[in-house]
Simulated assay, not measured.
Amino acid sequence: MDAFSYLSVLLSIIIGLAMTQILQGYRGMLLARARIILYPPTLIWSVLILLFATQSWWASFGLNDYKGWTFGTFSVILAQTIFLYMLAALILPDMPAGETIDLKAHYYREIGPFYSLTIAMLAASLLKDWMLDGRLPEPRNLAFHFAFAGLSVLALIARHRRLHEAIAPLIGLCTIAYIAALFDRL
């Protein structure tokens, strides 16, 4: 077994757990549908996190030929994956039996940790590229990271409902364009 195959197992497990968090949240919402107060940003972010997890797994294949593995390099990649898992764990609330579940209240309660983890995940992504290649990613990739980070900082400090309702779909559209432009093929 080569180093990539060995190391990718742990990353794949954490990505799978992140996807499981979201899918279990959807199951819980289906079962509690009569008690759910929906909120579009929460639902959009849950789909985005599934997309991030899929893209992360897809892009990790690009590490297949990397031969300079160090514990530090792997730790940064692992941290990025852990931040993704934590986003998945935060975006949808637990679904206690018999209680009304307000996705809007949950979203605003978790803004601080959610967007802080988003910024941390983006920083780990940039650090990963620096450690793997000795440079930041190519300009389109870097522009996406900065735009995404800027919107996340804005969402972290501003609590305006309309802003949050605009940021989630905007990041969604940018993410789809980002994946289409940079990660269409293995």
Rank of each mutant, 00 (worst) to 15 (best):
T100W: 06
G112R: 15
P93Q: 12
G98N: 00
E99Q: 11
P96Y: 04
A124I: 09
S125D: 12
G112H: 10
L103C: 06
Y108T: 15
Y108N: 10
R109M: 08
K104W: 06
Y115V: 12
L117G: 01
L122E: 08
R109E: 07
R109N: 12
L117Q: 06
H106D: 05
A124H: 06
L122H: 06
M121G: 14
P96R: 00
S116Q: 07
T118N: 09
I101D: 01
S125H: 14
E99K: 08
R109Q: 15
Y115P: 07
P96S: 09
L103S: 01
E110M: 13
A97G: 10
F114G: 09
A124L: 05
M95G: 02
L92E: 00
T118C: 12
I111Q: 15
F114V: 08
L103F: 02
Y108D: 08
A120Q: 02
I101F: 00
S125M: 11
P96A: 01
P93K: 09
Y115D: 06
P113R: 11
A123M: 11
E99C: 05
M121A: 15
Y115W: 11
E110R: 14
Y107M: 04
I101V: 12
G98I: 03
M121C: 12
L92A: 04
R109F: 08
L103N: 04
D94K: 04
G98M: 00
G98E: 01
I119V: 14
S125E: 13
H106R: 03
